[in-house]
Design a protein around this nucleic acid. Structure first.
Length: 865
RNA sequence: GCCGGGGUGGCGGAAUCGGUAGACGCGCCGGACUCAAAAUCCGGUACUAGUGAUAGUGUGAGGGUUCGAGUCCCUCCCCCGGCACCA
């Protein structure tokens, strides 16, 4: 009997050996073939969850694959350590956020280490450490000097009871999460970063990011939202009411103007009209999130003011409308209800005139009561009811009207972006302090470089009402750096997206306390492969691209694009189970406590809770979350099955970009495979050690087995190295091991085939299951670590097949198969296909119209009915 | 509401460039081993009909292009991610 597979015994000593040898250390100076493999760093929430587990296993597989191919790899790890959850935990437990956060980091670091990831821990960083965030502050001051950082007012969610600013997440159905009070919009001064100054470059740059998923590039392009159009002035009350439009061709269809409730014209109208003032005040209730905003019922009120149409001179009523955004364009629109869906709905609701000015070149009838998509068309249209512009198409209409407005000084061509400048001020304690001192005489003064960092006091406990920094004189009180007078510090901290916008440039030089980055950063950047959740497709990735460009412009790095290749992993899902009480309230039970009965077909027949044996109901497959109690703890599974089994299942169950459904029996299956692999390699080892393989001397069975091995080598290398479809690489290894275990070894040369096969499989699966691979590799007689074992190379000659199976179709339906040597000519294949028994039944007495031959693959015989 | 993605057996998924739909795994059914169970091993498993060879049907729904469509095009339905203060 061979020793059974016991990961609890084999895994820890292997990890200790890696640690002792510092096996995952990356060089400071990378060479030409080095590879920077980066995962999105975790928020230290307390425990490693399955999403982390999946993310870091993906990057570890890629890292180990490149290491086995002889490339130096940097795979670092750090902590996105500032943020709201620490303040919530602090409130709940009365513990300072710093203490809670650092405890979580220590625990999660241990959990990561137990998974055997090839991480260079010497480069670990945490964004809550002053030696990291001082460089946020340093670059922020540089941005102030360059005008990239500036101050203006912004709108936030205000809880009138707690007198505090709320995050969008803390606003539930328009009410504060703790107080239940109706949330209000409030304008406060904030710092902004002028990302819009980079809008064009950020958009252009997407074209060259061919290592990024198309969908992410599309989402970013739409987010930046470049529109070419016109700024048009409508004279109004002695001033110019400016609007931006992409459709100046429809100007003759403008029947009213709509301005945002925060627009200066609206505020002016409110001073003389109580109803307008009341309306504007009613728009101030509710939160600031765009999703909420877009779901609002469209409402408005006439200001009584009129604007003059720049072409016709007609008077257009000016309305205040809640569907106009102050933050886009000019905060005002010319409403063309005939050809804009939102204007159309609004005009119908308030009985405002609707005029058709666009008509299809041929066709559809215009109906002023029912909206049609073609009303907004730009192609195959002509202008109507537009006076001298009648008959022009979109482009000609645009040019004609634009030209006339330019001549009269009432319009100019302009490009408008949807992207807004990045507001980075947060009215929160647990974040990086914004390095500003407020002096009664000098105003807002940046903290000089030699006084950085502004260190966040770590002992405070927030209470949900305002920022505790404001009540901490040791932090607040200081001297003005300019005049020396007593002054006060800024209490706002930075958005945590600032922390995560450049951490990957700090890993290479994490020990440098003289500079933000150094030569080593330049050498390692850009990141070769970035891996993280699809939920970061827009904000984080766009901010990081922006921040990298700022660092480039300050002369710190040479690259503009930080991430050459991007892999966006899907979410981790699990079953949900519940019981419902009389009132319809649901109690959710963890899937690990549920026992499922299946019928003869394998469908779920019934399910009971293990704890009381009573039934529970299936609630569908959902994202692992506390609210549905369907989270599975990776740490528990690791202690039960070992790291390799958990890693294997998470890579095998789905391709990385898709969502992954957790399944306990699936984990069992991965466990069984590793047990079999262990057993089969040991059985092979019980036989005499074979001599050198003589490929030319193999019989058909031996040659066929060897072909499978080399096909598996070729496929696994392609799947892991190019396609990133780890699930199919694993399936190929499983399939090959099934064949190898059934391979009838009849001579020493056969045994040499088996040895070559097992040595290949152990290495092919090593990036996924490094512990068992290293253990088996040693037992197969090799002394080095699995990372140094080298990636197997396939032998082209071994892939050649004597006979191929060719499918024969009649009218596109498979009717038979024939055997033919590769490269057979069309005539022979056609003849063989027609003489196949079943095929001839379908062809006889029919007229053959055409025969399509796909060489070495398929024949399709097209016959008439 | 807007932007993006997805939908294939009982389940997770495979089919890489328009060419054999269902690899691999789970589950289920049958068998071996066992006093018995677990574990393990062997065989079967899209659906319908048939002992079988085989035939018909089948990739969310409906239409189209093609010798041939899971894959391309159009319309629709459902699910998921993001929407700027969750990270």
């Amino acid at each position: 009997m061979t020793e059974p597979y016991n990961p609890a015994a084999i895994e820890p000593p292997i990890r200790e050996r890696w640690t002792a040898e510092n096996a995952f250390r990356s060089p400071d100076q990378p060479g030409v073939d080095s590879f920077y493999c980066l995962s999105m760093f975790p928020y230290p929430s307390g425990h490693l969850h399955m999403g982390h587990m999946r993310n870091y296993t993906i990057s570890d597989v890629i890292t180990r694959f490149h290491r086995m191919n002889g490339r130096p790899v940097l795979q670092p790890m750090g902590w996105d350590a500032f943020g709201l959850p620490a303040e919530n935990a602090a409130m709940a437990r009365g513990v300072p956020p710093a203490e809670w956060t650092r405890g979580n980091i220590a625990h999660m670091r241990d959990q990561l280490k137990e998974l055997g990831f090839a991480i260079d821990w010497d480069r670990e960083l945490a964004t809550c450490n002053p030696d990291y965030y001082r460089w946020n502050q340093w670059l922020f001051v540089k941005m102030l000097e360059r005008g990239i950082a500036y101050k203006k007012t912004g709108v936030v969610n205000w809880d009138p009871v707690d007198k505090t600013v709320l995050a969008n997440e803390q606003v539930i159905d328009g009410k504060g999460w703790r107080t239940g009070a109706e949330v209000e919009k409030r304008e406060i001064p904030m710092y902004y970063l002028a990302i819009t100054g980079y809008a064009d470059e950020l958009l252009q740059g997407l074209d060259d990011l061919d290592g990024w998923p198309e969908r992410v590039r599309t989402m970013q392009a739409n987010w930046i939202g470049k529109s070419v159009g016109m700024e048009i002035s409508f004279p109004c009350d002695g001033e110019a009411l400016k609007v931006f439009t992409t459709r100046p061709d429809t100007l003759m269809g403008a029947t009213y103007m709509a301005v945002a409730p925060e627009h200066p014209l609206a505020l002016r109208a409110a001073r003389g009209d109580q109803a307008v003032a009341d309306f504007i005040r009613s728009c101030a209730s509710g939160g600031v999130s765009e999703a909420e905003f877009a779901a609002l019922e469209k409402r408005g009120i006439d200001t009584g003011l009129t604007a003059t149409h720049p072409l016709t001179g007609r008077a257009l009523p000016v309305w205040v409308a809640n569907y106009v955004l102050m933050s886009y364009g000019e905060g005002a629109v010319m409403a063309v209800p005939g050809h804009d869906e939102r204007d159309f709905a609004f005009a119908n609701q308030y009985s405002l005139p609707i005029v058709q000015v666009v008509a299809p070149v041929d066709g559809d009838r215009y109906d002023r009561h029912h909206w049609q998509d073609w009303y907004t068309a730009k192609d195959n249209i002509r202008l109507v009811h537009s006076g001298k512009y009648d008959g022009l198409d979109y482009q000609a209409g645009f040019e004609a009207i634009a030209g006339e407005l330019e001549a009269s000084g009432l319009g100019r061509r302009r490009t408008q972006f949807r992207l807004r400048d990045w507001g980075v001020s947060r009215q929160r304690y647990w974040g990086c302090p914004i390095p500003i001192i407020h002096c009664p005489a000098c105003g807002d003064v940046p903290v000089p470089e030699q006084d950085l960092p502004v260190v966040l006091p770590e002992g405070l406990v927030p209470d949900g009402s305002g920022n505790p920094l404001a009540r901490c004189p040791e932090f607040m009180d200081c001297q003005c750096p300019r005049c020396g007078a007593p002054a006060q510090r800024e209490t706002d901290t930075m958005d945590t997206f600032v922390d995560s916008s450049w951490y990957f440039m700090r890993y290479p030089c994490v020990d440098n306390d003289e500079a933000m980055v150094d030569q080593r950063t330049k050498a390692w950047m850009p990141v070769d492969q970035y891996i993280g959740g699809i939920e970061h497709a827009i904000l984080h990735l766009l901010y990081a691209r922006f921040w990298t460009r700022v660092m480039r412009d300050v002369g710190l790095v040479e690259v503009a694009e930080p991430f050459q290749n991007l892999l966006t992993q899907g979410m981790v899902l699990a079953e949900t189970w519940y019981r419902e009480d009389e009132a319809g309230r649901r109690t959710w039970y963890n899937p690990s406590r549920v026992d499922v009965e299946r019928d003869a077909k394998g469908s779920i027949a019934s399910a009971v809770l293990l704890d009381d044996g009573k039934p529970v109901h299936f609630g569908g497959i959902e994202k692992m979350a506390k609210s549905k109690n369907n989270g599975v703890d990776p740490a528990e599974l690791v202690s039960q099955y070992g790291a390799d089994t958990v890693r294997l299942f998470s890579m095998f169950a789905a391709p990385p970009e898709q969502s992954l459904e957790w399944s306990d029996s699936g984990v069992e299956g991965s466990w069984r495979f590793l047990k079999r692999l262990w057993q089969q390699v040991h059985e092979h080892l019980e036989q005499p050690t074979p001599g050198d393989l003589d490929a030319a001397a193999l019989d058909d069975a031996g040659r066929e087995m060897r072909r499978r091995v080399h096909e598996t080598i070729a496929k696994a290398g392609d799947d892991i190295g190019r396609r990133y479809t780890f699930n199919t690489a694993i399936a190929a290894v499983m399939e090959c091991s099934n064949h190898l275990s059934r391979f009838d070894v009849r001579c020493d040369n056969d045994r040499a085939v088996a040895r070559e096969g097992w040595e290949a499989l152990v290495r092919l699966i090593a990036p996924v299951t490094p512990h068992i691979s290293q253990a088996l590799w040693h037992r197969l007689g090799h002394a080095e670590d699995i990372l140094g074992a080298g990636w197997p190379q396939h032998d082209e000659a071994a892939l050649v097949q004597q006979q191929l199976t060719i499918v024969v179709q009649v009218n596109g339906k498979v009717r038979g198969r024939i055997q033919a040597p590769p490269g057979s000519d069309r005539k022979q294949i056609e003849a063989a296909a027609l003489s196949e028994d079943n095929v001839s039944r379908f062809v006889q007495n029919k007229q053959i119209r055409k025969v399509i031959v796909v060489p070495d693959k398929l024949v399709n015989i097209v016959v008439s009915a």
